[in-house]
Design a protein around this nucleic acid. Structure first.
Length: 494
RNA sequence: GGCGCCAUCGUCUAGUGGCUAGGACACGUGGUUCUCAUCCACGGAACAGGGGUUCAAUUCCCCUUGGCGCUACCA
C-alpha cells in the first residue's frame, strides 16, 4: 500500500518561438526524470499565448528534438506517425491558445472577487510613467491608476470601445514566503511586485495567468522551470490563493551559462539541440552530459544510462548555482559513447560524414573503424578519413623520410615494402596481422629498424605525418590501392 | 536603481562541524609506440574576502565583493 500521495504530474511548457534550447532540454529532462522516477506523468504543453512571436514549425521541431533525445512525454502534445502535431490525454487541450476561453473566465472571476481589475492605461502613458520613474531613480512599476476605477465605469468604458487589459490587484504591504524544492524558503515583499497584466488587449492571457490556471487544471504537482521565473512566483501564488487552490511545489533550476558566465546564448556558440544532433553528437551522450549540468547523484561517476538517471534522480540534490555549458567534456563523453557502442551503430552514425567517392561501402566501413579511436564526434571523420578517398596524395608538405633518414634510404625501404606486398595474395594483403608479420619479417631479415621502414611506409600510404598505423592502412586499402600509393610515393621521391 | 538568487581546482562537480578537501574534463610528465590517437601511471590545480558562533569551520550566522536573474500587454 504505497502512493498515498497524489500521482506525480509534471510538465515541460516551452513556447514555440524557435528551436529547443539546450537549457530547455535539461528542463524537460529533469521533469521527465522526476515523472519516471515517481511513475507519474510527464506532459508537454505548448505556451503560445504571445501571438506575435510564433514561429512556423517550432512545435514540430521541439517535439522532434525531444524525441531524438528520448525525452518523450506520455501526455499532451506529440507528433503522430505522419509527423503531424496531435494531442493526447484527459486534461486537454494542451496547446495554450486553445484554452483562451478558460483563461478569460478565470480572469473574470478574479475581477469579480476583487483580485484583479480592468486597466485602460495606454502604452504611451505607461512608457511615460516608466521614463519618469527611471529619471527619479524609482523602481519602475505601474502606479495603480485604474485600481480604483469602479466596476460600473469599467464596463461602460469597455462598451464604448476603449482598449483594456486585466491586471492583478496585488497586496501593497506584507510579504509572501514560499518553499522552493531546490532553494528552500524564499520571501518577497508585496510592495515590490507589480500589478501584472494577466489578460492582454488582444484577449490572450499572459504567461502568469495561463501557466498558473493550466497547471492547476492539469493537476500538476511539481513545477520545474528555469530560475528566471523565481521572482514572478509570488504572482502565481496569489492566483492560487485567490481561487483557494493548492499550489504545486516549485523548483527553480539554475541557469546554463556561456563561458563568460552570462546566460547561455546563441552569440557564443550553438545552443539548439538540433545543432548538436546535426553535428552527429550521440543523443545519449548529450542527454548524459546535460543531466550532469546542475545535478549529480554521486560525484565520482560520469556515465549513466537514461534508466540509471531515472532511478537515481533526486530533485533535492539539484545545484543552486549556474553551470557553464562547456563542450570539452561533452566531446570526451561523446567519444566514450562512440567507443563503447556497437560497430553497426558507430558506422551508421559516422557514415553520413565520410567523403565517400566510391560505391564501395565496405571500404568506407573499414576506414571508419580504423579511425574510431580518434573520433570525438561523428563530424570529425570527414577530416580524419579524407585521405583514404583521394586519388592522389600530396607528399610535398610531409617528410616521407624518417627523422634524419636519407631520401635514398627511404626509397630503398619503400621498394622493399612494395615488393613484399606484391608477393601477398589479395586476401592476405587485406589482413592486418599478415601484413604486419610480412613487413616485420622483412625488417628483421634486412636488419633494418622499425622507424626507418614503418614511417616511410605509413606516410606513403596516408600522406600525413600523423595517422593510423601502416599495417592497418594497408589492410584497409587492399593490395591494389596499397601498391598504387607506394608507387606514388616512390615517384615523388625520384 | 529596486528586489531576489548564487559563490569548492580553468570547467562540471563530491562534501552537509573534525577529511592530507575526493572524482571527471582540460592541461603537464612518463610508459606502450614509426607518428598521432587510444590505453595505463603519475603530477600541478580550489573552499572569493572579512567578521562572528563553536573546543573545532569549506560546512552555521552576518557583512563586503563578485556573478546572474527579474523589474513588458515576452515567455
Amino acid at each position: 500500500m504505497r502512493n498515498m500521495a497524489p500521482r506525480t504530474r509534471v510538465r515541460f511548457a516551452p513556447s514555440p518561438t524557435g528551436f529547443l534550447h539546450i537549457g530547455g532540454l535539461r528542463t524537460a529532462l529533469y521533469n521527465e526524470l522526476l515523472a519516471k522516477h515517481d511513475e507519474g506523468d510527464f506532459i508537454l504543453r505548448i505556451e503560445d499565448t504571445d501571438r506575435s512571436r510564433l514561429v512556423e514549425g517550432a512545435v514540430e521541431n521541439l517535439c522532434r528534438s525531444l524525441e531524438a533525445c528520448g525525452v518523450v512525454p506520455n501526455e499532451g502534445v506529440w507528433l503522430d506517425k505522419k509527423g503531424e502535431v496531435t494531442q493526447r490525454g484527459d486534461f486537454g487541450p494542451y496547446v495554450q491558445s486553445e484554452r483562451k476561453d478558460k483563461h478569460q473566465t478565470y480572469a473574470k472571476q478574479l475581477v469579480k472577487m476583487g483580485k484583479a481589475y480592468h486597466c485602460f492605461c495606454t502604452t504611451e502613458r505607461l512608457e511615460e510613467l516608466r521614463a519618469q520613474q527611471q529619471l527619479e531613480g524609482k523602481p519602475t512599476m505601474y502606479d495603480g491608476k485604474c485600481r480604483s476605477v469602479p466596476h460600473e465605469e469599467a464596463l461602460k468604458r469597455m462598451e464604448a470601445g476603449e482598449s483594456w487589459v486585466v491586471r492583478l490587484k496585488l497586496p501593497k504591504e506584507g510579504n509572501v514566503t514560499f518553499f522552493d524544492s531546490i532553494r528552500d524558503d524564499i520571501t518577497f515583499d508585496w510592495s515590490v511586485i507589480d500589478d501584472q497584466v494577466i489578460i492582454k488587449s488582444d484577449g490572450f492571457p499572459t504567461y502568469h495567468l495561463a501557466a498558473t490556471c493550466d497547471d492547476h487544471d492539469m493537476e500538476i504537482t511539481q513545477v520545474i522551470r528555469g530560475e528566471e521565473w523565481l521572482s514572478s512566483t509570488p504572482k502565481h501564488l496569489f492566483i492560487y490563493e485567490a481561487f483557494g487552490w493548492t499550489p504545486p511545489k516549485f523548483a527553480h533550476l539554475p541557469l546554463l551559462l556561456n563561458s563568460d558566465r552570462s546566460k547561455l546564448s546563441k552569440r557564443q556558440g550553438d545552443v539548439a539541440v538540433e545543432d548538436y544532433l546535426k553535428k552527429g553528437y550521440v543523443p545519449e551522450a548529450l542527454l548524459n552530459f546535460v543531466a550532469l549540468l546542475g545535478w549529480n547523484p554521486t560525484g565520482d561517476r560520469e556515465i549513466y544510462t537514461h534508466d540509471e538517471l531515472i532511478a537515481m534522480f533526486d530533485i533535492a540534490k539539484i545545484n543552486k548555482s549556474g553551470a557553464v555549458f562547456n563542450t570539452e567534456k561533452l566531446d570526451w563523453l561523446n567519444a566514450q559513447y562512440l567507443k563503447s557502442m556497437s560497430e553497426e551503430r558507430y558506422l551508421e552514425l559516422t557514415h553520413p560524414f565520410v567523403a565517400d567517392a566510391t560505391d564501395d561501402n565496405s571500404f568506407a566501413d573499414r576506414c571508419l573503424l580504423l579511425v574510431r579511436d580518434r573520433v570525438e564526434k561523428p563530424s570529425d571523420v570527414t577530416e580524419l578519413t579524407d585521405f583514404f578517398f583521394r586519388d592522389n596524395l600530396d607528399y610535398s608538405t610531409v617528410s616521407i623520410a624518417w627523422k634524419a633518414q636519407e631520401a635514398s634510404a627511404a626509397k630503398e625501404r619503400l621498394e622493399a615494402v612494395r615488393d613484399a606486398i606484391e608477393g601477398l595474395s589479395d586476401t592476405d594483403a587485406m589482413n592486418m596481422a599478415t601484413v604486419e608479420s610480412t613487413i616485420k619479417g622483412l625488417i628483421e631479415a634486412k636488419g633494418w629498424g622499425n622507424g626507418d621502414t614503418l614511417w616511410p611506409m605509413r606516410v606513403a600510404l596516408s600522406g600525413k605525418e600523423k595517422s593510423p598505423g601502416p599495417f592497418e592502412l594497408a589492410a584497409a586499402y587492399g593490395k591494389k590501392k596499397t601498391l598504387e600509393r607506394l608507387e606514388d610515393a616512390l615517384k615523388f621521391l625520384r
